[in-house]
Amino acid sequence: MVAEASTGARSTDRAPVPLLRLTGIGKHFGPVQALRDVNLEIYPGEVLALVGDNGAGKSTMIKTISGIWSPDGGEISWEGNRVHIRSPRDAAALGIATMYQDLALCDNLDIVQNMFLGRETVRHGFLNEESMETAARKTLTDLSVTTVRSIRQPVGSLSGGQRQAVAVARAVLEDAKLVIMDEPTAALGVSQTAMVLNLVKSLAERGVAVLLISHNLVDVFSVADHIAALYLGHVAGTYLASELDTQRAVELITTGALAGSGQPGAGKD
């Protein structure tokens, strides 16, 4: 589907082509216009936080990107090419990994088994546990996940943050290019939250684009490169995180505009 590939993504500057670009995306459910004319860009290695009040369209938006719902109108392009994401399978094939709040892990399986579920390495028909365990351990180490007691313990015995780590590691093993995280810190304590935010940073350092949905502005400001505010189904503006502070972000979320601001998205480069 995608013949052309982006180049130079590792440089400090942004890649010339965004990984994902939404242009004029709309979605309605009956008379309710959930999304209208949504424009958004996300680049490799960048953390884009999506903020907005309840009902602003955050969920609809991530479900559109991850193929659960098709948009009514507008265009999605991936690495510069127009794509149609019609199912979660399409999204996964492109390299989009969506982590919902429930995380979908098997509590009775261990960390390695969960990370490789559905993509097990097999040798002569038998599971190749050595290669999977080695790869899993390397991925976790690369992500600086060092708090798990044993990589062979069942996921059911892990803390909330550690479970997030397993889900993130799973996405990394999948070679995901875009990881969408829906409220990853919602149910976590302070140290667990810090751990998950570190994971987000590690993902970005690896060149993965992260779309972070969060209500918690402290978390948002600690990891996001850019912040997009949704207001009543519309992108009220995309800003560099350094352009905003908590107060201005709240203003954006609640009113959909910044008093006395210039053009939204100004100074993105």
Binding site: A5, T7, E79, T134, A135, K138, S150, V208
Partner: peptide, 29 residues
């Protein structure tokens, strides 16, 4: 659907990345 060509290198299991067992032992029982 598969993408080929000069992609961003994300493969965590790439052979050229050095694995250090001493470091990896840290999170094990």
């Amino acid at each position: 659907m598969s993408t080929t060509g000069p992609e961003i290198e994300l493969d965590p299991t790439a052979a050229d990345q050095v694995t250090d067992p001493a470091v990896l032992g840290g999170n094990e029982l």
